[in-house]
Design a protein around this nucleic acid. Sequence first.
DNA 1: CCGCTTCTTCACAATCCCTTCATCATTGGT
DNA 2: ACCAATGATGAAGGGATTGTGAAGAAGCGG
Lengths: 226, 226
Amino acid sequence: MKEILVVDDEARIAEICRDYLQRAGFKVITASSGEDALSLARARRPDLIVLDLRLPGMDGLDVTRALRKQSNVPIIMLTARVEESDKLIGLELGADDYLTKPFSPRELVARVRAVFRRIDIGPGQSDVIRALDVTLDVPRMQARVGRRSLDLTSTEFELLAMLMRQPGRVFTRSQLLDAIRGVETESFDRAIDAHVKNLRRKIESDPRNPRYVLTVYGVGYKFADA
Amino acid sequence: MKEILVVDDEARIAEICRDYLQRAGFKVITASSGEDALSLARARRPDLIVLDLRLPGMDGLDVTRALRKQSNVPIIMLTARVEESDKLIGLELGADDYLTKPFSPRELVARVRAVFRRIDIGPGQSDVIRALDVTLDVPRMQARVGRRSLDLTSTEFELLAMLMRQPGRVFTRSQLLDAIRGVETESFDRAIDAHVKNLRRKIESDPRNPRYVLTVYGVGYKFADA
DNA sequence: CCGCTTCTTCACAATCCCTTCATCATTGGT
DNA sequence: ACCAATGATGAAGGGATTGTGAAGAAGCGG
């Protein structure tokens, strides 16, 4: 099993990354400073490192530079701003990919998988999600119910994908919000309700009695698991 | 082992094709009429068909048309005449490559291998790209919609080819930009919009309601897949 | 060096859809 | 059965995204 080192000084972001990566089947260790990251990387030799560019003290570039002297471990850089220079410098120094905050945790998982796919030609995770008679083709952003193809917005698609990856599991509104809008954006929980409403209108034959996207009173939503 | 169906009413030509293809390591079956070809194709489901355009009764075009209704089997068309129209019609209807008589048997073997190579590698390298009623002849840089031939600039052609190699798959602007201008050049994402606009003006009968090049709001563009 | 084609950029209009709000329906505990 | 909390829904607003024409660059051939 692949081990990933996540380095971020903001506990909440590191938390979310760990959460999603673990659920995607990776083993995750974390560090909150550049120094810790370096020693952990040397001790554990992770298969990949997710590295925040902005770190107190030794920042992401310093860490990359130091690591590159002795290892070719893939690095995915997290950058706070869209500054082109940061991207270029990061890639120049040996980052394999970068993500700009705010990013969706799902996007991170996708990038991680992509990096691993590039490295070992071993078959990556499936890009198609199925549950009941609903099928999602993620790279094509296509959804089908039975033979009927759905016309979903990207937000609706992300939402549905999140639910369908673990049918039966309940997600809170804020989890769903994080997944589709990125961890740093903040909006009202109830926005999810609206998306669920629109999604149901498209996916359910009788939106009043949903068969796919179910409400869990007081908690959130889940995709039906049987 | 790959099985190839050779269809030609001239026994001598069919003979020579079989001879060379077998020596190249392929299993070969033959038919001498369009009707036989169709039933053999249905019964044996060959991996590739070499098809003479001129056949008594049901000719190569009829056979292609009939086959295409139920299969995507690669077809290499043999044409007796050098007339452009024949080539174009053949490609329009779904041939993957064409050879003009007289041809060298070695050339045939080379083309057959090329087709298999493309297929094994997956989509993306084919000489002829088809989707809906749009056909691209990549080496000739020719594009057609139905019978109408389009006059595209090289950028427009590349853009369209990129989209058509994976119909239905959504590409972001930066992916498209990388593909047509190379990763080193940097220009504004929205330049793609301009090319899409120009492309639509040429390919769509009603650019306001595109049938081929579709917008995926918030993501990018895709070629229609149904 | 000029004119033509093509590509890119810009500005503004048109469109989309995300969010919010207000209201009504449903839920579940008492 | 009541009622407070939670969810559903339609409508409206506004920010973000895309469409489009025109004008400015950049090639290219003559």
